[in-house]
């Protein structure tokens, strides 16, 4: 056991670097996912059938083919097919972005649809352009609705990052795996790893709850007391997991 901790201390630079890779993959992956969520989600609400169709096909494709396969395809198959190779981290970011972006687009679409039609009508009555209606009236209200579901998705994405270990991206899992193989302390290693991910997940949840609180205040709503530490409950868990 003491052997484990001395090894851990010994390997600390690698572990810290691994943690950084995990955070990087999470942040960049979720930024790409956020971008795609809005792009595909807005396309899904288009009046033009081809635009809606493209969005639908892309979303169903990336939701339907399993993240694991997408990652492996990017890492193993793409170089073979195109001769062009991505670094493991970029593979991870792209795969996470595409996969969770597809799920996120459903969140965006659903939130936009949940804004009462009366709000749209009031904007029409004030002669706003379609773009102006979306930007100033619909989207600010939809955004508040999206945050809890996005929080869920973000945690899911974080939980998917150990996949990077399988494509040798030197993430947190890779680093701790290394410590484990050096010491043979299986149980402690994995418990430590789980705790590390748990702490990361809670930190992200806290940040997102802060964001939600700010957004709610902007709408003149009162965020419930103590809501900052809450994790997601059934409704949002069902939207992130349930629509898969």
């Amino acid at each position: 056991m003491s052997d484990f901790f001395s090894t851990l201390l010994d390997e600390f630079p690698q572990v810290r670097a691994g943690l950084w890779v995990t955070v990087e993959a999470t942040v960049l992956g979720s930024l790409l996912a956020l971008l795609l969520s809005f792009l595909l989600g807005l396309m899904a609400g288009s009046r033009l059938l081809p635009v809606r169709g493209v969005s639908r096909v892309v979303v169903e494709f990336f939701r339907g083919t399993s993240l694991y396969i997408q990652l492996f395809w990017l890492y193993y198959a793409m170089p073979q097919l195109t001769g062009y190779e991505l670094t493991p981290l970029v593979c991870g970011v792209v795969a996470f972005g595409l996969n969770y972006g597809a799920y996120g687009s459903e969140i965006v679409r659903g939130a936009i649809n949940s804004v009462p039609r009366a709000q749209y009508e009031a904007a029409v009555a004030l002669n706003m352009t379609p773009f102006h209606r979306m930007r100033k009236v619909i989207m600010p209200q939809a955004w508040v609705q999206m945050i809890p579901s996005f929080t869920n998705l973000l945690i899911q994405l974080l939980k998917a990052t150990p996949l990077l270990w399988l494509i040798s991206a030197a993430d947190l899992m890779t680093a701790v795996e290394h410590v484990r193989s050096r010491t043979g302390e299986t149980l402690v290693s994995y418990l430590l790893l789980l705790v590390a991910y748990f702490v990361l997940a809670y930190a992200l949840t806290l940040l997102m709850n802060l964001l939600e609180r700010t957004a709610k205040r902007r709408l003149g709503l009162h965020p419930g007391a103590g809501s900052l530490l809450k994790t997601r409950t059934a409704e949002s868990a069902a939207t992130a997991g349930g629509t898969r």
Binding site: K159, A160, L187, Y190, L193
Partner: peptide, 19 residues
């Protein structure tokens, strides 16, 4: 439950298999 839900399935699997 919170702990299991907030931590990666992959780590849980690999850990359980190793233990």
């Amino acid at each position: 439950m919170e702990f299991v839900r907030a931590t990666p399935l992959l780590v849980q699997l690999v850990g359980a298999a190793a233990v």
